[in-house]
Design a protein around this nucleic acid. Structure first.
Lengths: 202, 202, 202, 202
DNA sequence: GAATAAACGAGACGGTACGTCGCGTCTTAAG
DNA sequence: CTTAAGACGCGACGTACCGTCTCGTTTATTC
């Protein structure tokens, strides 16, 4: 995305924003990430290519905005237990990652990250930051509940919970079922609950 | 890669295999995945493009072969405990994923997977299958040792252990340190050890 | 150019006319015809693009107005001989065509003529018509003087005198010197003086 | 055009040369210079754009090659008189300039000359140089015949004869008829025959 | 040893997306 | 109604890269 606030001259037509994003989503669904073309998107939206490039610096930014931007996750409700909270959280994370659009778009965007710092920031912000924030809440809740003696690093919790989902999305052929999702959440809950010193050998 | 066995005519020059792979690795280090060009690779190797395409079906296959192929992981030694085995395994997985070449190459290859079934198989075989096999050994060992009452699904173990490492590689800016790697392994060990029914709410 | 006479609402700011033309001339000198951009001209003049298009229909019209319009040639003084008159006329024509601005602008405008009838008319009026008129005067003067038995077609005279100057401007690398200009005028004078039937073979 | 002589690798397909030039000529006839598009030319020729750019540096070079290149004028036959030779020469020049393709292409190419030195050379070579050469022959023939005491500068002769034709082509609406062409040639013959000192006032 | 078959270096080829740029029009708010 | 600013539709440009094909040449195996 680009700078949002000019106050002089003709203002951006917000209908175009919507038309472009919609066109991009349609083409993505029809032809996949590679099949989405700036020219085709412009044509589908009834818009000039320049109008797109005025809003998005690149195809990657466009498709990010069309699919992932604003897909905020809701703050997790208190289920009464750490494990319950993690299960809910796992489902939320999973859901967000496995929408058809997201499945199409995430791998190429991850590939783009190496040459696009701005996109990198955007992706990290969308996924990592918000999820860590929510996990911090969950973990703190568990500590207050007495399930945890000390609240572990939310970043660790995020890796433990989100990592398996992420890996499954990217390299496994078939989507995960709820049972497996719950098994992951349970294992993470157990892993977080057990103190580092609890195990016999260290 | 392609079929290896014609027996007529001039045989393949095996020097070329090496020269091409070396050239690809050099260019990858210099310019990143996108910067690697088949033409440049051929030129650098002192070779025609056809000689490359005779060996590799596509740029993706070439770079896979140049960086990831044959990077087999050694079967994990018995450390005496599940947690110790997982720590060793975590380090092995991490090491393999974070070589400079692998970091450059993995994201684009993941993106390529959607339109290249052969590559998909190759990647899954290299990463998922071998790691699952090794984890199966580890888990079975722990069961025999008495650490686990029932051996959990190796696929689950793989997701739990490999997922966090994978996620960190792809979306986090900085590499993981050993402490975090160990923390992950410990948490996974605890998660696997705790029976599903042990927790109060299920 | 466009219709000059609105009488309602805010009157045109005549400072803008000058600023635009000056900006166009500056940019023309700096960057040549192609390098002149409507946007850049507007910016240089401190003016909106609309203010330019309100005055000129196109880039071609603008640059015509900025460089050639009003460049009227003075009626030729009587030098006492056809040859003298033609020499004076040749210099006038040459001078008008070889100002730096004119050299930059004439070839593109000639190219534009094929798709712009209005511009065609303007150019023909500026160059052909006025020069023919003046040549008609010169030729008629020569007839009265007795140098010519019959006044030849002024259009022919114009082609004979203006053509060589034009050709030199467009395709020759270096500008013409006065000697050559005089030689051309002399030859044309001789050519017009000699009756068609004077030559042996016809 | 570009360098003609590689001896390694796959040779240029000369069918493509012809197909591209033919396509360019067709499109030129259908849509005019501006209407000719590199993409359309490629499509029409059943060829990739790169194959065109490999042969021609720019649209201007392509259209030059498609219309004017190789349009050499034949050496003028001896008609027995300077005037006859000039008439023949005038017709040859006129004919070359007024083919439909040439009429379309010459004005834009003249406009391109200012930013394309190579094209400038090509055009000067095609038109100026060859015509001067032929005129030198004609003038020398006339001198030997005794029609001229001294052979005038062929460059001057070229300006006098070619200039009017050129001017008529570029700025006059309608094509010239043969009568006018002959009148020009006659006038030039007379102009060249008359010695500079013959006229009363110098 | 000649014939065959394939590999080889070089680079042309078809195709196609990219991002940029300019033109001339349109849309604001301000005057 | 004019102005400054600048967004808009359109569409061409020239570049780049992919993966394939075509040369002429080289190098083994097979007849």
């Amino acid at each position: 995305m680009q700078n949002p606030a000019p106050r002089l001259g003709r203002p951006r037509d917000s209908h175009i924003d919507q038309a472009v994003l919609a066109a991009a989503r349609e083409l993505l669904a029809e032809s996949g990430y590679v099949g989405v073309t700036m020219a085709a998107t412009a044509a589908r939206a009834g818009v000039g290519k320049a109008a797109i490039y005025r809003r998005f610096d690149s195809k990657a930014e466009l498709l990010f905005a069309a699919t992932l931007h604003g897909m905020d996750i809701e703050p997790p409700a208190d289920s009464g237990s750490l494990r319950g909270d993690l299960r809910a959280m796992a489902r939320v994370i999973h859901e967000r990652l496995t929408s058809p659009a997201a499945r199409q778009v995430i791998p190429p965007l991850l590939a783009e990250m190496s040459h696009d710092a701005e996109l990198t920031g955007r992706l990290q912000n969308t996924f990592v930051a918000s999820e860590r924030r929510d996990l911090a809440v969950i973990v703190e809740r568990a500590r207050k509940r007495g399930e945890l003696r000390r609240a572990p690093d939310p970043a660790l919790a995020h890796l433990l919970l989100g990592g398996p989902i992420f890996l499954a999305l990217l390299v496994l052929p078939d989507p995960m079922d709820t049972a497996r999702l719950d098994a992951i959440a349970s294992a993470v809950a157990a892993g977080l609950t057990t103190e580092p010193g609890d195990s016999p050998a260290d």
